[in-house]
Nucleic acid binder design. Sequence first.
DNA 1: GTTATCATAGATCTATAATATCTACGATCG
DNA 2: CGATCGTAGATATTATAGATCTATGATAAC
Lengths: 132, 132
Amino acid sequence: MKYSKATNYALHTMLYLCSVSSDKPVGVQQLAQKQGVSPSYLSKILTKLVKAELIESSSGANGGYRLKGRKEDISFLDIIHAVEGSASLFECCGSEDSRCVIQQVMLAAEEAMERHLENTKMIELVDTSSCD
Amino acid sequence: MKYSKATNYALHTMLYLCSVSSDKPVGVQQLAQKQGVSPSYLSKILTKLVKAELIESSSGANGGYRLKGRKEDISFLDIIHAVEGSASLFECCGSEDSRCVIQQVMLAAEEAMERHLENTKMIELVDTSSCD
DNA sequence: GTTATCATAGATCTATAATATCTACGATCG
DNA sequence: CGATCGTAGATATTATAGATCTATGATAAC
């Protein structure tokens, strides 16, 4: 079990967009170059963030991506759910059999992690950012 | 990102071994049948639990698997680490770049989940077990 | 000692998801 | 109109999970 590289790209892109905090959209070429990944692939990931309404895109010349909401409101969990989906990490018997005690423990553990990810907002990292 | 089915099989097998709590080893055929999985596959998973010293195996007639340690000491995290490995769920820049603030947040979140899994011991589920 | 039973290790196969690229398309600005 | 830029879809490529089979070695019962 591992977080995908796509999640890594998404988090770093969001952190960058939060730190520039400009009205001007940033093109995917520039974003991709900073992370050493192909623009085609990154744009697929960013489209998920658009659909989750974390960022918005503008086409045409001087187009690109910019934040939609406020930095204070964007959590790690928002970004991760947008990329990875929000399904449970553990499924016992195919469906959600809530009677399974193992399922209950795993779900509670997962919620502990998600609580932490939900409480950490992007704005907290803006000034201290390295490795972006 | 999802927990593997192997983890599911391992957890259910461990819960069963904890609930029978007999000196007699249980064969992999019986364990596999209860979960609707092939004995060949399950034995591969159980071998990992043996190497992690959570259970012990005995060959030959009337052989099989039985608990090694005490139920009070076996945590969910022990089992999960035995099957999935104990590497971090998130890797930022290939190596463990501890300067990356994103990495730090993800690591802290993961630790919150692991803390919960470590504090939940098998014995707590033995009596209430359904879906085993 | 022989035989039946049972775990282990290794090779192998398939299925599925992650990773990545390319092309065609539609939208926008100058 | 024409250059720029995001979107969607098709497609290719790995990597990993999931699963099975065979050969081997260990053990107990006879």
